[in-house]
Design a protein around this nucleic acid. Structure first.
Lengths: 341, 341
DNA sequence: GCCCTGAATGAGAACGTTCTCATTCAGGGC
DNA sequence: GCCCTGAATGAGAACGTTCTCATTCAGGGC
C-alpha cells in the first residue's frame, strides 16, 4: 500500500513551502496570491492529498470529536435525542461517539477516561447518580441531559416535566375524570418524586382527595405497567383514568386492561409520557405528553458549541423545553362504571 | 488551565528516559526492572499523567476509532444492531462513531471522507446503492451490513431472509391458511423482490395459485401498511392471513383491520418481520420473524476485528445469521369468513 | 535614489508519542 | 584479568500538521 501524500509532497510538487500549502488548505485564501493558490490546488488534486486531522489535532489540541453518553440506545427514548445531537454537531464538523452507560457508574467512568485519553473536545451526558465527583477533572466542556439537579456549574437541557404533568392531569379533569390514578416510576429516583408532587398539587388545586390506593409504584418497564394496572382494576372502586409515568408503563397498562376485557378509552382512559414511536402504533394509539426529544438533542449540542466557542465567558444555562399534549385514542370522557360488561 | 503532564514530565520526575516510561505505559513490564517500574508508576500517579492517544495515533497510524454508517438510528431496527457493534468493539478498546446516511448517497460520501480524514481504522456500513465505487479508495477494512450483493470483495453480515420468509409462510399454512396475502416493500429494491420470490416459491411448493390481487406493494411505512390492508380487506374474497415485509407495515395493517372492525387474529391473521420492540407492545402482540439484530452487530464487529488483525490473509466471509419465528397473538387458524360481524 | 510599508512567502520549532539503535554494565566463562 | 553476552536503559529521529518569526520584494512617497 503506497504511503498517502502529505503536505510536504504537495509543497514539493507545487514548488512552495508547506506553510503556504497549509494556508491554502485551511482556507486563508486572502493571504495567498491567486497564482500560488492555483498551483497548490492543482498539486493537491494531482496527488489526491487529504489533510491528516490526527496530526492537526496534535498541534492544535482540538480533535473535533464529541462524546455522547446515554443510558442505552436501545431504549426508545434515546435514538431521537441522539439524532438531534448528531445532526447539530455535524454541521460544525464534529464527529459524535455515542456510548451506553447502562446506568452503571463504573461503565460511565470508563467512558469519561476515554474522553480524556482521546482528547475529545466535549461531552454531552445523561449522568448516573455517581458521576458528579468525576466531572471535576474533565477539563472539557460538559452539557447535561436532564434536570441537572445535583450538578451545579454545568449547562443542562431538559424538558419541563412538572408543567407537563399538570397539562396531562388537567386534560383528564377537563374530560370529566375525577378518579385519576398515578402509576409512578421508581420512587427512589428524583424525577418520579417530582411527578408525584405534581400529582398531589393537581389534586389539591381541584379539591380532590388523595386516595393512596390510586398511586402505584414500579420501575419503567412494560411489566411494571401490567402489574400496576391489574392492581388498579381490581380495586373495589377502580379509577376512570390512569396517568402513567412513561409510555412503556402506559402500554403495559393498556395490555392488561385489554386482557381483563376493559375497553379503552370507553371504560378506562390512559395517558402516557414521552411520546416514543410506539405510542402511535399501539392499539388504541396512546394519548401522551410529547417530550421534545430531538430538540433536546439539538439544544444540548448548541449549548456545547457555544461553550466550545466562548468558554467560561458565557453564564451557565439550564434550558427547559416545553412538552406538549398529544391526544390520540386512549382517552375519552368517563363512562358510567355500571356499563361495564 | 495548567498544561497536562506529558511523558517527558513523568520521565523527568522518575529520573528515567521517556522511552522507559513508554515501555511501562504500554505494558512491556518484562523489559523494565521492578525497581524502575515502581519509580515510573509513582511518578505517573503523582502527576496524574494520562497517555495522549492522539500523539500515539500520529506515530502508529492507528486511531482505534471505527465508523458505523446506518440509514437512521431513529428507525427501530438499528439501535440494537448499533448496540451489538458498540459492545463488541469496546471490549477491544475501539470507539465507535455512528452516522446516519438517511439513504442519501451524498451524505454517505461525506462520511466516507470523514473516515479518511480522521484516519479511522475501519468502517461498518449498510451502504446506499451508490456507494460501491467509492469504496475502492478507502484504504481501510470495510464490513457490510446486509446481503453484500453488488459489493464483491468485502466481508458482510446479514440475515437469512429467504428461508425466514419460508418459515413464516409455512407457519401460516400449518395453521390452515390457504389464502395468504403479501404486503411487499418497495419493488424497486432488491431485498423485497427476494421476498416476493420466496412467496411465489411457497405457493408453487404447496400447489397454491398466485392471485395477483393478494400482492400489494408499498414502502416500509405505517401508512403503506394501512393502505395495503384497506385494499386487501375490501376485496370480494379477502385473504385469511397477511404476511407483511416488516413489522411497521404489519402494525399499520393491524390498525386498519381494527378500524374496519376485523378481529385479529380470529378473523384475520397477520405476521410481520424484524421483531422490533414495538412488535411485542402492539395489541394484539405481533407474530413475526425475529431478525438477530444484536447478533448482526456483534458479528459485523467481529469480522472487522479479525480483518484489522490479519488483513488480507483472511478469506472474504459472508455471514448469514438465521431468523426465528416468534409466535404472539396476531395469528390463529382461519375462521369461517361468514362469521364476520 | 533612498527609505518605508505591507503583501507574499519561507524556515523551522513544536505538539507528545513510538521505536530503532546505541550504550552501559553486571556476571559468567575461560 | 579479559572477553562475551544479554539485560536494562537512553538518545534522538520521526509521524504530519500549525504557527511564529523572519525574509524577500514591489511600489509609493519624498
Amino acid at each position: 500500500m503506497p504511503k498517502r501524500p502529505t503536505i510536504v509532497d504537495v509543497a514539493k510538487l507545487a514548488g512552495v513551502s508547506k506553510a503556504t500549502v497549509a494556508r491554502v488548505v485551511n482556507g486563508q485564501h486572502d493571504i495567498v496570491s491567486q497564482e500560488t493558490q492555483k498551483r497548490v490546488v492543482d498539486a493537491i488534486d494531482k496527488l489526491g492529498y487529504e489533510r491528516n486531522s490526527i496530526a492537526g489535532s496534535l498541534r492544535t489540541d482540538k480533535t473535533f470529536m464529541i462524546a455522547l453518553s446515554i443510558p442505552d440506545i436501545t431504549n426508545p427514548f434515546w435514538p431521537e435525542v441522539t439524532r438531534g445531537v448528531q445532526d447539530t454537531l455535524e454541521t460544525s464538523e464534529y464527529a459524535v461517539v455515542t456510548v451506553n452507560s447502562d446506568w452503571d457508574a463504573a461503565r460511565e467512568l470508563k467512558y469519561l477516561r476515554m474522553v480524556r485519553r482521546n482528547r475529545f473536545d466535549g461531552l454531552i451526558i445523561n449522568p448516573t447518580d455517581a458521576s458528579s465527583t468525576y466531572f471535576r477533572d474533565m477539563e472539557v466542556p460538559i452539557v447535561l441531559l436532564g434536570s441537572g439537579n445535583g450538578y451545579a456549574g454545568y449547562d443542562s437541557v431538559g424538558s419541563d416535566t412538572e408543567s407537563a404533568v399538570q397539562i396531562a392531569l388537567d386534560y383528564l379533569y377537563s374530560l370529566g375524570h375525577r378518579r385519576i390514578a398515578l402509576i409512578a416510576g421508581l420512587s427512589a429516583r428524583r424525577k418520579n418524586t417530582s411527578r408525584y408532587h405534581s400529582y398531589v398539587a393537581f389534586l389539591a388545586r381541584n379539591q380532590l382527595k388523595l386516595d393512596p390506593e390510586l398511586v402505584v409504584h414500579g420501575d419503567f418497564s412494560l411489566q411494571a405497567g401490567q402489574d400496576a394496572m391489574r392492581q388498579l382494576l381490581s380495586l373495589p372502586h377502580p379509577p376512570s383514568a390512569v396517568f402513567a409515568a412513561n409510555d412503556i408503563i402506559a402500554i403495559g397498562a393498556m395490555q392488561t386492561a385489554a386482557a381483563m376485557n376493559w375497553r379503552i378509552p370507553e371504560q378506562i382512559s390512559i395517558i402516557g409520557m414521552d411520546d416514543i414511536y410506539m405510542a402511535s402504533t399501539s392499539l388504541p394509539p396512546l394519548t401522551t405528553i410529547a417530550k421534545p426529544k430531538y430538540e433536546i438533542g439539538v439544544e444540548a449540542a448548541r449549548l456545547l458549541l457555544a461553550r466550545l466557542e466562548y468558554g467560561d465567558d458565557l453564564p451557565i444555562r439550564a434550558v427547559r423545553l416545553p412538552c406538549e399534549l398529544v391526544v390520540r385514542g386512549s382517552t375519552a370522557p368517563p363512562a358510567e362504571m355500571t356499563s361495564r360488561l
